[in-house]
Structure formats: C-alpha cells, structure tokens
C-alpha cells in the first residue's frame, strides 16, 4: 500500500531523512519510534504533502502511485489521513462545517454523491458516539478551546468520518494523561480493519500497550536503524535509544 524507497528529505540545507525505506501493507500497524530530532515528524509531514520539505532523492508511493509531487488535498483524497501532533485551533470555523467540506471534497473527487447538511449530521452523530467525543464539541469552532484530550479525540473522530486507508498518527499520545490515552487508543482500535493500515509515530512505548503494533521501527539519524515486533518497543522503554545502531 505504502512504499518508501531510499527517501532523502532536506529542509533548507539540512538533510533530515537520509535514505529511509519502509513498506506498509493493508491491515498492518507499524510503530515508528525514535528520539527527538530523529526525523519522525518530518516523515509524517512529507507523506501528507506539507510544503517546506524538499525530497532530494528516493520516492514515496501509495497504491503504486508516487505521491511525492502531490498536493496535501490530493494525498488525502487518495486515502491518507494525518492525525496531527498539535491539531490546529481554527476559531470561527465550525467543526461540522469543516468536516462536511472535507468529506464532500473527497466524495466529489471520487465521483460519489455529496452529503447534504442533514445526511451529514446523521452520519456524524453515529461516528461521534463510537469515538467518545462529546457531541457538543461538534458545533464548536475547530479545536478552539478544546482540552488536549478533546483535540486528540477530535482527530480520531475526523479519521472515523473520512475513513482513510492509511492513517498516520503523529505523536497522538503526547500531552495525554493515562485515562485520555486509553480512550483515544480505544477509539483507534475500533477503527482497525483488515483493509486499513496505521503508522503510529511515538516517542514512548506506553501507547503501544493499548494499540499492539505488528512492526516496530526505530528511526535514528534519518534512517530506520532497527525493525522488530512489539517486544522491541518494550526493550526501548528499558534501555533507551542510545544502544540502537550499536549492534
């Protein structure tokens, strides 16, 4: 589904990703762990098409099509969803309005019928229950004045509405207390299917107690330095990141 080959990415004159390889198949859950500054967020942003990153070598393909030169909205329409580490607060833009615009843009692109306001509201009300988001937040401006936990739940809720094939969770666990973390993880687990793949980018192992990954990769110095199963995450938790790459 997603294939990253020898990906080199620079911001200005600084090379951040230095030849990264990663293959994600449908239904798989991949965790990407690594110390601060290892390039985790860069990887999430580059896949999602954020401006300001220069791909100097290599390629990212999604369903056998290169997405390196695609716009963020085109990547979203192709079925990629990025849950932000810091979801933007957008005062003045209603949550439901934004999400309907997003879903209908996607449907328009896929030549599906757009949902009108009442159809959309009905659709959304079912989704909101399943991720445990307070229904009142739907009519509020996007993330505006939301608590840290509410913002992350809102990301998962948006994911449930847009139904992506690949979801990238960028440090979704950051800033959450243990109860909020469990809730968010539960929301994500409900969205796991045999068709949908996940990339979970995280600094800590604790989220992986609740969302069990098929693969754990350690990102170090712009490359995947080590790949293992869930036990690798536990080892990283005990020993830190320094030993990776020593073997």
């Amino acid at each position: 589904m997603l294939k990253i080959e020898n990906l080199k990415v620079a911001v200005g004159n600084t090379e951040i990703l230095k030849g990264l390889n990663l293959t994600v198949n449908k239904g798989e859950v991949h965790a990407i762990m690594g110390p601060n500054g290892s390039g985790k967020s860069t990887l999430s942003h580059v896949i999602a098409g954020k401006e300001g990153y220069e791909v100097t070598e290599g390629d990212i393909s999604f369903r056998n099509e290169s997405i390196v030169d695609k716009l963020p909205e085109e990547i979203a329409w192709a079925g990629v969803f990025l849950a932000f580490q810091y979801p933007m607060e957008i005062p003045g833009v209603n949550n439901v309005y934004m999400l309907r615009e997003a879903l209908n843009s996607q449907r328009r692109h896929r030549e599906q019928k757009e949902l009108n306001a009442s159809e959309f509201l009905k659709f959304v009300k079912e989704k909101v229950k399943s991720v445990g988001l307070n229904e009142k937040l739907l009519s509020r401006p996007v993330n505006s004045g939301f608590s840290g936990g509410e913002k992350k739940r809102n990301e998962i809720f948006q994911m449930s509405v847009l139904e992506p094939e690949l979801a990238i969770l960028d440090e979704t666990d950051s800033g959450l207390d243990i109860d909020a973390l469990k809730d968010v993880a539960e929301g994500i687990n409900k969205l796991r299917t045999s068709e949908r793949a996940f990339i979970i980018v995280t600094h800590y192992q604790r989220l992986l107690d609740y969302i069990v990954p098929d693969y754990v990769h350690v990102l170090s110095n712009g490359r995947i330095a080590k790949t293992g199963d869930k036990n690798l995450a536990l080892e990283l938790e005990k020993r830190g990141y320094d030993w990776v790459g020593e073997d």
């Binding site: 401006e51 979203a76 957008i90 003045g92 833009v93 934004m98 847009l162």
Partner: peptide, 29 residues
C-alpha cells in the same frame, strides 16, 4: 496561517477553499 491551511488541506479541502474558509472565519466577527 500556513499551518491552519495545511491542516484543512490534509483533511482533503482544496487549497482555495481552505483559504476561503479561513478568510470567512476571520471576517465572521
């Protein structure tokens, strides 16, 4: 705000519409 624009585009909203939504929000008050 470039980050807000990216946030909306990453949800599948085309750039022009994303910017229009942000201007609309700015004017709302």
């Amino acid at each position: 705000d470039a980050d807000s624009t990216f946030y909306l585009r990453a949800r599948g909203i085309p750039e022009k519409v994303a910017k229009r939504i942000l201007v609309e929000a700015f004017l709302e008050e």
